[in-house]
Amino acid sequence: MKSENILNVTELLILQELMNIAFGSASADLEEVLDISIDLKVPAAEMVPVTKLKKYIQESMALTNKSSMVEEKFWGDFNGSAILVFPVEIQKNIISLLSAHDYPATDMEHIEGMDSGVLLEIGNILIGACIGKISELLNTVVTYSPPSIGSGSSSDLDFFIDKFEQPSSAIILKMEFSFHQKHLNGKIMIITSYNSINWLKKSLKLFMESYE
């Protein structure tokens, strides 16, 4: 790995502070959009080689076959994938969270489809809020592909990781979220692809230079 293609400790710290700012402002806005108070916390930025990505995600997201995972790709100067994981036991809670807000009446026979619909919608909004706020701070604009849903199973994860070019390293931005009143929590991980590292280095430098 060439040294100019990895983030150094200082750059990771700047990124961590940016995430802290971005997610703080995202929670305040999400509170209004979702009408629910939400905490986004414990942000951390790390570099992980793609070859170790699977094990890293499985361990740090506490994935099991029963987890639900929403994945969404984003494009632009800043590009990569975001995954959001819900532990399995909270799914019914999530539905009540949104159905209290008149979710479209779905045929009860297809409750399974509705489960994933609610997860996709919540996942999409949370991921969009986090990525949107980081992009804003870094002065860029991203576009998104429709989110997809999977379990935390090994094969679903393989499918997801195979999309990252090897050999390379990914910058991982991760954090936890929780909905106050609903005792719901989950984790979000943003995996930045290798080809945006140089842009990211430049943007972090510009961000700090704006205070000179």
């Binding site: 959009v33 489809g113 619909g117 999409n124 969009g128 706020k133 992009s135 804003e136 998104y144 429709p146």
Partner: peptide
């Protein structure tokens, strides 16, 4: 409002809506 606020996209899938 999430699109206005975050510049994100929203996907309203036929399967659900």
């Amino acid at each position: 409002s999430s699109v206005f606020r975050f510049g994100s996209f929203a996907f309203l899938a036929q399967k659900i809506h």
